[in-house]
């Protein structure tokens, strides 16, 4: 059975505006001051990570107005409002307040006249002001929201940081994933999670971590549950690690096809991201732990621009090219002249 990841579900499908504001203040260190309807935040919910600049909506063009998103009013919008006479200002602002907008942020120290704030207060749309510059504020807010609404999935396997490369060891129950992970920990690598691995997608990165419950516990068949952190200490564990390679252990079967050159790179799709994927048949005398280390080092080499399979391929091709020109030699010893037994 090939490695099949599970359907992804979002961490949260909505967050309340008061939670958002509190987190932005505490975690992202953004100054926010409530200007209107500050107490309505508990019942207003943000449901998506995207933001809207409501310039066109203020001007009266309401087709495709994404009112369900967070609205950010910056310099352009404020100056547009200010250049209108008072009654037109109210009219323009009412274009926004007629919708169920979750929250409006006023950036770059901009302020709205009191009679517009009163309009928002009436319908209970919270407005917060911040001295942060608009694009910078939007970047921080987007980053925060993307994490809040990130997709998650749970996979079965052991996640280990090997030489800084995040390897997920997958395979059927009882094939020896935990044993390989334990062996890797014993050799100084770090365990992220065993058996239950939570994958979170953030932009094009998959972050793996354990669940709150199974954190740094491991089941060794025949022995039961062991606590890796208590046994091997703090250096043997990690909270999270980016997933970089998926290694699936399979039972050897004469019909199964295995990669012999390493020229072709298989991938597996997890939450619409293609992850490097290696199938490793277990055969007698094969030390999976050492192979896992080799996989990590090979991945690092490729990352640094050296692909051994390709280097070998190039060597063969140049040798063949030489031969077709009639210059090449037959099979040659790797060294031309032995100087005694030195090296």
């Amino acid at each position: 059975m090939p490695f099949t990841p599970q359907p992804a579900i979002p961490i949260k499908d909505k967050i309340s505006v008061s939670y958002l504001v509190q987190r932005l203040k505490e975690r992202v260190h953004i100054d926010l001051v409530a200007c209107a309807a500050g107490d309505c935040g508990d019942h207003r919910y943000v449901t998506e990570a995207d933001l809207t600049r409501p310039g066109l909506a203020l001007a009266g063009y309401l087709e495709l107005f994404t009112y369900q998103r967070i609205q950010v009013i910056g310099n352009t919008e404020t100056q547009y409002i200010e250049h209108l006479p008072e009654d037109k200002q109210k009219e323009a602002f009412a274009n926004l307040t007629q919708y169920q907008i979750p929250v409006i942020f006023l950036t770059d120290g901009n302020q709205l006249p009191q009679y517009l704030l009163d309009l928002a207060e009436e319908v209970g749309i919270p407005i917060y002001a911040t001295p942060y510059e608009t694009t910078r504020f939007m970047f921080l807010l987007r980053d925060f929201l993307e994490d809040q609404f990130a997709l998650q999935t749970m996979v079965h396997g052991a996640m280990v940081d090997v030489y800084g490369i995040g390897i997920l060891i997958a395979g059927k129950s009882g094939i020896g994933k935990s044993e390989v992970a334990l062996d890797l920990v014993e050799r100084g690598h770090r365990l992220v999670a065993d058996d239950v691995v939570m994958l979170t997608k953030k932009s094009s990165v998959l972050m793996a971590s354990a669940t709150q419950m199974s954190k740094h516990f491991m089941e060794i068949r025949g022995l039961g549950i062991v606590d890796v952190m208590s046994m091997f200490g703090i250096r043997s564990v990690r909270y999270q690690k980016r997933l970089e390679v998926v290694v699936e252990l399979t039972l050897w079967d004469d019909t199964s096809e295995v990669n012999r050159t390493g020229l072709d790179h298989d991938t597996v799709n997890i939450m619409n991201l293609e992850m490097p994927y290696i199938t490793l048949p277990i055969t007698p005398g094969k030390n999976i732990t050492v192979i896992a280390e080799v996989i990590a080092m090979n991945h690092l080499l490729k990352h640094y621009g050296y692909d051994p399979a390709k280097a070998f391929q190039d060597r063969i091709q140049s040798s063949i090219a030489e031969k077709t020109k009639g210059k090449g030699n037959t099979m040659q010893r790797a060294i031309e002249y032995f100087e005694g037994d030195i090296e």
Partner: peptide, 29 residues
Amino acid sequence: ASKFKSDFYIHMYGYRVNGKSILGVMTLA
């Protein structure tokens, strides 16, 4: 569950855990 050849999964909270993994099952609590 491990006595049988079939794969066994448990769905809870929208997640799916492997029912042949004790840590997986216990994680659900």
